[in-house]
């Protein structure tokens, strides 16, 4: 009885003891998703994985035609072959992942307590290569994007489920990603949020700005303007360049944390990568 009382007292006093600055990812996510649902009342939560196509009938019609035979199909096929190809030691990528790597992409990025760092799917693929005596691949384009595309395709429709464990380093990584997302940078003085929260759904030149909500769900992505596949990191680099800011390194902590924050905001949305965008 007494113990229970103490426990109760602790839970009651806990929010008071924590300063307002204490990270609360769950509350952030609720607010984040709520902001968009209020902004666009006609759009159900799951529709956000379709990004810009919720905002332009002409574009969504073209997209539907393109999705009849999605341009990323070659990447998925190539990725599957690479995924199943044995390393010289006889092992495959399947040996590095839970459930043999099938249907698990929705759980990335993950916090790795051992290194105290966020691990994206791309970084996990490279870790697997290094563990099996192979060289790392580029995190932005090429075979790694293809392997990611295949692995993500096996998670099609599964709810995104990024976990932030009760670990000060995990919370710090999340908070750093959040700060990066909202911080204006570059000569043009834009933050990620300037375009993808405050101006979401509006036109920037010929394009519709995708809402930040659901944005990570469609990666890796075949963009017509790239003419091939790219990972989320490739997009981060592109966005930084657009605001005239020097991009970070593809495996930088900044980008890992940003992916952690952004994907966590998409928790519960259906995984829909690989995707196709203009």
């Amino acid at each position: 009885m007494r113990l229970a009382f103490i426990a109760l007292a602790l839970t009651v006093s806990a929010p008071l003891a924590q300063a307002a600055s204490q990270p609360d990812p769950a509350a952030d996510m609720k607010a984040f998703q709520g902001y968009f649902l209020k902004q666009f009342p006609k759009l159900p939560l799951a529709a956000y994985v379709n990004g810009p196509y919720n905002f332009s009938k002409s574009e969504s019609d073209q997209w539907k035609q393109i999705m009849e035979f999605p341009p990323y199909q070659f990447a998925v096929d190539d990725g599957k072959k690479l995924f199943e190809t044995k390393f010289p030691d006889g092992k495959t990528y399947a040996s590095c992942f839970p459930n043999g790597g099938i249907g698990i992409a929705q759980n990335y990025p993950m916090f790795d307590a051992k290194t105290g760092k966020v691990v994206t799917l791309g970084i996990a693929i490279n870790r697997c290569r290094v563990a099996n005596g192979q060289k790392k691949l580029k995190l932005t384009v090429g075979p790694l994007a293809d392997i990611s595309a295949y692995m993500t395709s096996t998670s099609d429709g599964k709810p995104i489920n990024v976990v932030i464990p009760h670990n000060p380093k995990a919370l710090a990584a999340y908070e750093a990603g959040k700060e990066y997302f909202y911080t204006r940078r570059g000569q043009l003085n834009f933050s990620c949020a300037s375009c993808h929260v405050q101006a979401a759904g509006m036109h920037l030149r010929g394009d519709v700005l995708s809402p930040a909500l659901g944005l990570t769900a469609a990666f890796p992505l075949y963009r017509s303007s790239w003419g091939d596949m790219g990972t989320l990191v490739r997009r981060f680099i592109g966005c930084n360049q657009k605001v005239k800011s020097e991009p970070s390194k593809p495996d930088s902590t900044a980008y890992r944390d940003l992916a952690y924050f952004m994907t966590y905001m998409d928790n519960g949305l259906p995984e829909s990568g690989p995707g196709a965008r203009p």
Binding site: D28, A31, F32, Y35, K178, E179, Y182, T183, R184, R185, Q187, N189, S191, A193, S194, V197, Q198
Partner: peptide, 23 residues
Amino acid sequence: TLADLSIAQAKAQKKLWQNEIVH
């Protein structure tokens, strides 16, 4: 000069970013 400006921007953003958070 440009580096100075970006440093000033980054310093200001250390606090200002919080104004952009979605609530």
